[in-house]
Design a protein around this nucleic acid. Structure first.
Lengths: 186, 186
DNA sequence: TTAAAGATACCGTCTGGACGGTTTGTCAAG
DNA sequence: CTTGACAAACCGTCCAGACGGTATCTTTAA
């Protein structure tokens, strides 16, 4: 009787819909409210349908993580392509992306990622792996203490965005970004 | 039959024991594993005993939060007392405390706080209040963009400690700390 | 060309266990 | 003997995941 039986099948569409909904819910209600029932219902899919795409809850979180990290990587890649200077290029891209994270519709998803990231030991390990890979990749251009410090500061700003602990006006943010970018060249 | 019936009653001892265990568990197993059963059992207390001290789970988290923020405040107060220069004094104290957080036995508790902080919307609001209070309190000495940036960087380092995403050697850490302290005077 | 034969994409229900919280009972201290 | 500090059994709810089914797509072979 349900419509999904009869509508055209579009597995990857449903899959991404599920991820999107999962991100939204974990942001709005907190990670604890992320139940399979809630996700499937909000996505207009039955629970069985959800479990067809993701065999268990952990797999759903993993999928969420992979998706968002992939976006993060793409954004960084993009920012790096627009940067001619080799030295500190990765760091500047990282800064740019981090500062822009909470802007736009995509920002919401990032926040959900972070929350899960810090709360879940499992995802914590995967993020660690990402950092290690990137650090090794750009060891020759971005391993200076100043670059590292700049990236840490970006993390701090991003954390503040996440918690909404500081109200920053745009000009202050812009000034900070410039200052940190300068640091990546020092 | 259980020993707690016969041992000397020491309510505040049991209470702090419960908080300590709660902090440890949420760190080791993630916030999701923080169940009343697990906490009470690990603390060698019955569930009823736990609920005698904290009427519900939220009260337990609040107690944890209060305890840890109080420690944080004391540590900052201490660091400020040892600083003669007025300008940026709060920021330097914040830096010192943040950089020292994961050292020593106390560090574990802080990490648990953070996790709960970001995951729980309720605690997020309380932390926001703390930040706002402190910011207002030291508006005249620590409100410059440089001070703010230094504190954000400290948050980033602290986050890295929390996730264990970066392996920093002691000398690099020390250099960073000095650099940020200098920023608080600029 | 087409129709059988899987394979894939779902639906809807059920269950076993976990978990927050309650209640009642017990012991010890003042 | 009263009150605070627990213990222990219990309850209602919620949730992850299993399961058995149905509809649509793809392949294949006559």
């Amino acid at each position: 009787m349900s419509s999904a039986y009869h509508r055209k099948k579009q597995p990857e569409r449903v899959r991404s819909q599920l991820l999107e909904v999962a991100a939204r819910l974990s942001l709005e209600q907190g990670i604890a409210a992320l139940t399979l029932d809630a996700v499937s219902q909000a996505a207009g899919v039955s629970k069985g349908g959800l479990l067809h795409h993701f065999p268990n809850k952990l797999a759903l979180l993993d999928g969420l993580f992979d998706e968002l990290v992939a976006r993060f990587d793409r954004a960084i890649e993009e920012a790096m392509a627009a940067d001619k200077v080799e030295k500190g290029r990765f760091t500047r891209a990282y800064l740019t992306v981090c500062f822009a994270l909470d802007q736009g519709a995509e920002g919401q998803g990032w926040q959900a990622l972070t929350i899960a990231l810090i709360a879940e030991p499992h995802l914590k390990a995967r993020w660690r792996a990402w950092v290690a890979r990137r650090a090794a990749e750009f060891a020759t251009t971005d391993s200076s203490p100043d670059c590292l410090l700049a990236r840490f500061a970006a993390d701090g700003v991003w954390l503040a965005d996440l918690i909404r602990s500081h109200e920053l006006d745009a000009s202050t943010r812009a000034a900070m970004l410039e200052k940190l970018k300068a640091l990546s060249l020092a």
